[in-house]
Design a protein around this nucleic acid. Structure first.
Lengths: 196, 196
DNA sequence: GAGCACTATTGGCGATGTGTCAACAAGGGT
DNA sequence: ACCCTTGTTGACACATCGCCAATAGTGCTC
């Protein structure tokens, strides 16, 4: 048995990538740390050494999965509200469908939504997305707590609808786009103004 | 040691009620079958005898939690669309806030969303709710698959918004009501018609 | 009321998974 | 070539779960 010694960062990265693959393909309970260790060609104890507990490892995985889609929304297209809504929805659907499997695993929380820590990670990602939405529709400057809550609510709709689209396949992309864009316009014009 | 013998139905019911209380207060992984058995004053093996596996027990619990709110939506108030939207939203918020803790535990899936079987149970409840919505707005007769998908999407919004309301408390009930009613009207008038 | 049969209930066995930690060895510095 | 840092291992202790043979309530029969 010849065992190789790696830089901590490299080893950590390698284990993490295996964990991402496994947690992306089956729910939390169906992935054992033994599985991760075996597929990484490593002793099980090393997984704990680098990531602490199994849940800690999972949190790291979800964090990565949810951070990937944070790729620049920076280019705000300007124009009237309907056009802006269209382009932010398009952007969202593009990103989500590109990383569909890992994104679905993360938002579906692969078998651990409801756990306080996991929820925190997801909630933070939703927060970021909600702020992005508010910025894109021109209400980004110092939003009320209520306004951010409403925006999170819309993000919830977007997540759920995208899941409906990608997992069930009963909606076409055009239908999803219409649904999300229309509701966003409604939110901005008729609901957000009441957040005081 | 004096042990009592119960009718199978009674014992089953008793264990189930304990399980509902426990799964309603902490996530799936933090509830052991030993806990359930101890609090029910029963040997652990008996839990398996009545419910099979731990997940089976949990599925039963979630089923009960989600079935409670299914209390009659039967009285459709008639009137124009905005009035109907208002009353169905009121009804929903009433039911949900009344059973808030167990409802939150069930929809948040107390630590096991993502698991295929659990998702099935939740999805079925969402289906029922979606049909209720469609009926309430007068589109209940033989809906398209796409239309039902859109309705489920709206139910997803309602669930998420209610969670935002009950758990975070940054939105008032009036704001939640406005958000859901307004978006429902928009859905019916501008989105549902494109489900062909 | 004593014995009996039915079955609800128990307790423990084996398997699996997890966190920890002392011991081991790989690989660079001297 | 030796040593010393530290990445890495293997095993121990503990918890939980599914299963099943053994046990003992409880109503029924005579």
């Amino acid at each position: 048995m010849r065992r190789r010694r790696l830089e901590p960062d490299a080893r950590r990265e390698q284990i993490l990538s295996v964990a991402i693959r496994l947690f992306g393909s089956k729910p939390y309970a169906d992935v054992s740390t033994t599985d991760v260790a075996r597929e990484a060609g490593v002793a099980r104890g090393l997984v704990n050494h680098y990531f602490g507990t199994k849940k800690d490892l999972y949190l790291e995985v979800v964090r990565v999965m949810l951070t990937v889609p944070e790729t620049a929304l920076e280019l705000l297209p300007g124009g009237e509200l309907p056009e802006r809504a269209d382009s932010i929805v398009s952007w969202f659907l593009d990103v989500v469908s590109r990383h569909s499997t890992s994104w679905l695993a993360a938002t579906g929380a692969g078998g651990m939504a409801g756990d306080a820590d996991v929820d925190d990670v997801i909630a933070e990602a939703v927060d970021v997305a909600a702020d992005g939405v508010l910025r894109a529709v021109g209400m980004g400057q110092e939003p009320t707590a209520a306004l951010r809550g409403m925006a999170r609510s819309y993000v919830g709709l977007a997540i759920y609808t995208a899941q409906e689209w990608l997992q069930r396949g009963v909606l076409t992309r055009d239908q999803v786009h219409l649904l999300l864009a229309t509701n966003l316009v409604t939110m901005v014009e008729r609901v957000f103004p009441h957040a005081r």
